[in-house]
């Protein structure tokens, strides 16, 4: 089965971070420790390829905190499926991003 994206180390880290509950751009940067300038382009590419889906957080929540709504990312079924390969190729990486308190 051909993949629509190349499974590089940064890609794997981003996917694991999202599964681990880090869903916002800056959070993903913090969680993965990848250079700041590389994370967003990566997110956009994965979104275009249908690996991730982006969505705006609930407007009401944001308004309550008197800040603009943030955009969060989630794994699509394609993204979920690719995690198997992540686990196979980067076994040492998986425990580092273990989900915080169960499923996201």
């Amino acid at each position: 089965m051909g993949r629509l994206f190349s499974l590089t180390y940064p890609t794997a880290a981003v996917l694991l971070a999202i599964r681990g509950g880090h869903r916002y751009g800056f959070d993903i940067m913090d969680a993965t420790g990848l250079p700041d300038g590389t994370v967003y382009p990566l997110l956009r590419r994965l979104e275009r390829r249908g690996v991730l889906s982006g969505d705006w957080e609930d407007e009401a929540t944001a308004r309550a905190e008197r800040r603009p709504p943030r955009r969060y990312y989630a794994l699509t079924p394609v993204g979920e499926a690719s995690l198997d390969e992540v686990a196979r190729r980067f076994p040492a990486l998986v425990p580092l991003f273990a989900p915080e308190g169960g499923a996201p």
Partner: peptide, 16 residues
Amino acid sequence: GPWRGEWEAELVYAWR
């Protein structure tokens, strides 16, 4: 528009 919104939201959140 969306691009700017996303970055601004992250910035505001982080600054807060």
